[in-house]
């Protein structure tokens, strides 16, 4: 079935001020889709975790927010897809980074597994020396 995307919005995420900006943008866009209050908070929190990962380990990057209309199985189902891309050192072992308690920096290592728990779909692609892309989606109900 049709998967159409609204025009994306794109934000740079390079420092702690822009982390706040990214989660505000995510919350504002998500609010237009009819997410519940709890879902809005979960989305904003996941964005914050991923944005901070990007600033701390990826040397900054950018985030795009896109409205998705309809997934493969349920036409008309709407969702918010967030894609975060950096050109940092990359993650050598993505599987391990997805486990609770794994960390390479000052964080508690909650970033990736934490964000995954808050979202419906979550994917990480990373290549050492090239960068990391995190793509995560939340569906309205």
């Amino acid at each position: 079935m049709a998967v159409t995307m609204a025009p994306e919005s794109r934000l740079p995420v390079r420092d702690d001020g822009e982390i706040v900006g990214a989660r505000r943008a995510a919350r504002a866009l998500a609010a237009t889709l009819g997410f519940s209050e709890t879902d809005l908070t979960m989305i904003a929190t996941a964005v914050s975790e991923i944005a901070r990962n990007m600033v701390e380990y990826g040397g900054g990057g950018e985030m795009t927010f896109a409205v998705i209309d309809g997934d493969g199985r349920v036409p008309g189902r709407r969702g918010l897809r967030i894609t975060a891309t950096d050109h940092g050192p990359g993650i050598p072992d993505v599987e391990r980074a997805m486990q609770d308690g794994y960390t390479t920096g000052r964080g508690l290592g909650l970033g990736l597994p934490g964000a995954r728990r808050l979202m419906d779909e979550f994917r990480v692609e990373s290549a050492v020396g090239v960068g990391t892309t995190v793509s995560m989606t939340k569906w309205v109900v």
Binding site: T38, T41, M42, G114, L118
Partner: peptide
């Protein structure tokens, strides 16, 4: 702490 925030914090294990 608001309900949604408490929920997300608990989900994160914080």
């Amino acid at each position: 702490i608001q309900p949604g925030v408490a929920f997300a914090m608990a989900q994160l294990g914080l």
